[in-house]
Design a protein around this nucleic acid. Structure first.
Length: 345
DNA sequence: TTCCAGAACG
DNA sequence: CGTTCAGGAA
């Protein structure tokens, strides 16, 4: 067993070493990994990945970064182009927040992404997860990243139970901090200074052999974070985990306990999508996206949807008006006199 | 049906 | 702490 939630040392060590080896052999070759992206590019990938599968993100990220390689470029773009390029990624408010973020970075930050958690988490659209992910993945700083995948994996492996729904608990954060390589006192990596993690982190997070100590304590924290998350995405999935192929199956408390409550729904049932405001908002926005983008227009001709056209998009006009109003409040559209709508400049 | 690298707001 | 906010694919 363990004491006060801190896993037995040898088990933690085995998990670290096996996961590191698994990562080297199985990490997906995502375009922002392995030193191919700037810190800004990594931030963009994280924002796009919020509540969105990586497989869908890849083509959007590639086109986005080619068009707007840095924060200054995105900051200067017309909103309508930004909303258009977001396409069908979902949650389009993220696109607007990302541009607001770019404007802050390009302005107040001198076009350089902040290097501290506090400064990152203060940016628009950047919460605890994204700030931690950038600190770890972009800068190699030693910080525990906590997302739903990591919560699920750590909870299963070390606590032998399913992670609870809702926000991460204090216990989950404590567990993530406890098993993060490099700080359990006698762990060898020593202080909070992470000199063993090069600035060009990504190069060392996958394609270069590592000189790790026997207890795994010198495995870079960035590799640990990424490998735990990757395991959660590819093997230790919510409903049908591939325990037979798991690199840490011999040390998993959840598997040893017979996988109690596997895939148990801990969260409130999700709102159905069909017929919701979210669907209607998506339909309205999609209609606007189909019009010529602002950057492609000839002067004097606006990409406007007349009111009569808007009304054809959804039968329930009360709901339609509610959604048009909420899109306007979110800054995703503009309502013109007479009820026509367009994407904002 | 279900799932999925969250954040902001009241 | 509860809600809202998309969309696609297995």
């Amino acid at each position: 067993m363990d004491v006060m939630g801190v896993p037995e040392r040898s088990r933690t060590a085995r998990v670290r070493l096996r996961l590191a080896a698994w990562w080297e052999a199985n990490a997906r070759d995502l375009p922002w990994r392995f030193g191919r992206a700037t810190p800004w590019g990594i931030l963009v990938s994280e924002v796009m990945s919020q509540q969105t599968q990586m497989s869908r993100v890849v083509p959007y990220w590639t086109a986005w970064m080619e068009r707007w390689p840095d924060a200054a470029a995105l900051a200067a773009a017309p909103k309508s182009d930004v909303i258009g390029a977001w396409g069908r990624l979902g949650y389009p408010r993220r696109a607007l927040r990302l541009q607001e973020c770019a404007r802050v970075v390009a302005g107040a930050c001198g076009d350089e992404l902040p290097r501290t958690y506090d400064a990152l988490v203060a940016l628009p659209g950047v919460g605890d997860y994204t700030a931690s992910a950038v600190m770890s993945f972009a800068y190699g700083e030693r910080i525990a990243v906590v997302d739903t995948n990591i919560r699920r994996v750590l909870s299963r492996v070390f606590a032998g139970e399913e992670s609870r729904g809702g926000a991460a608990s204090a216990a989950e954060r404590a567990l993530a901090a406890a098993v993060l390589p490099g700080d359990d006192g006698s762990d060898g990596a020593g202080s909070d200074d992470d000199d063993d993690v090069p600035r060009d982190v990504s190069r060392d997070s996958g394609d270069v052999p590592h000189d790790v100590s026997r207890d795994g304590s010198r495995i870079p924290s960035v590799m640990w974070n990424q490998s735990v998350m990757e395991l959660g995405a590819l093997v230790c999935t919510a409903k049908n985990p591939l325990c037979g192929h798991c690199p840490v199956r011999d040390d998993c408390a959840f598997l040893a306990a017979g996988r109690p409550g596997l895939g148990e729904r801990r969260t409130r049932p999700r709102q159905r999508f069909r017929g919701t405001d979210r669907q209607v908002r998506g339909i309205v926005l999609d209609a606007l996206r189909g019009l010529p983008a602002a950057s492609e227009q000839s002067a004097g001709r606006a990409s406007v949807l007349e009111r009569a056209t808007v009304e054809t998009l959804w039968k329930d006009h009360a709901q339609l008006d509610r959604c048009v109003a909420s899109l306007d409040e979110d800054g995703l559209i503009e309502i013109l006199p007479g009820g026509a709508i367009r994407l904002p400049r």
